[in-house]
Write a protein that binds this DNA or RNA. Structure first.
Lengths: 111, 111
DNA sequence: ATATATACATAAGAAAGTTGGGTATATTTT
DNA sequence: AAAATATACCCAACTTTCTTATGTATATAT
């Protein structure tokens, strides 16, 4: 969790992928899920998450449903049609990025 | 080369690793090498590169030797002792990051 | 003669985070 | 009962890192 710099740029991809897997999630839930799934390695801060969700919603990539649970307001996000297309593109980009980085930092391992 | 956002945060690591491999390189050479080694996937812009080299030099991670070749000034960069230590740390961080991202985006592949 | 390649550099702005607040309710601990 | 923690949302100031657009200068290719 000390290499947060590297995660810069991948937050949107992570969100799109998670929402595609889970169907719908609310913000707070996303932070907990990611922390759990990465064994604490990645801590998404709320200061980063909420603005990103609003941005993706504004772009028509995400849609929102409000729900009152336990007298607390939740905003459930899910992918729109556009969001599902965008998610495919992002995952392709990420896969290529990961491949490239592995090729760059460990060419000896490959050979 | 349309997923540049993802590379945000990894430029310093790439530079440190390349310099460790090659011994010494000058700036322009780094852009050409990376482009070549990534089959054009990653284009390091000079606007990003030069300030980064200066920053790393300022931190004592890199050292410079000036050389006049073909009547053109080159600035050869190489790792300092501190730089070699820093490089190890950065590569560890990067490896963990890559692992985490693979785990996040392809849990089905792993299982 | 002109365009491209080599080789350095900076500065304005955009993008995407961190940090540090704030509000409100529910649950757990002291 | 009071205090602390967890749940659930939000925003604003600031920082880091990169893009885009320049600028300078020499060498080589068209």
């Amino acid at each position: 969790m000390n290499n947060q710099k590297l995660y810069k740029g991948s937050l949107q991809t992570i969100i799109l992928n998670l929402l595609d897997e889970k169907g719908r999630l609310y913000g707070y839930e996303i932070t907990k899920l990611v922390k759990e799934q990465t064994q604490g390695e990645l801590q998404i801060t709320e200061g980063a998450l909420y603005p990103t969700l609003h941005k993706l919603e504004g772009e028509g990539v995400l849609q929102v449903e409000m729900e009152l649970v336990n007298n607390r307001q939740r905003k459930y996000y899910s992918l729109t049609k556009k969001g599902r297309l965008e998610k495919v593109k992002r995952l392709e980009d990420l896969a290529r990025f990961l491949q490239t980085m592995e090729g760059l930092i460990a060419p000896k391992v490959k050979a």
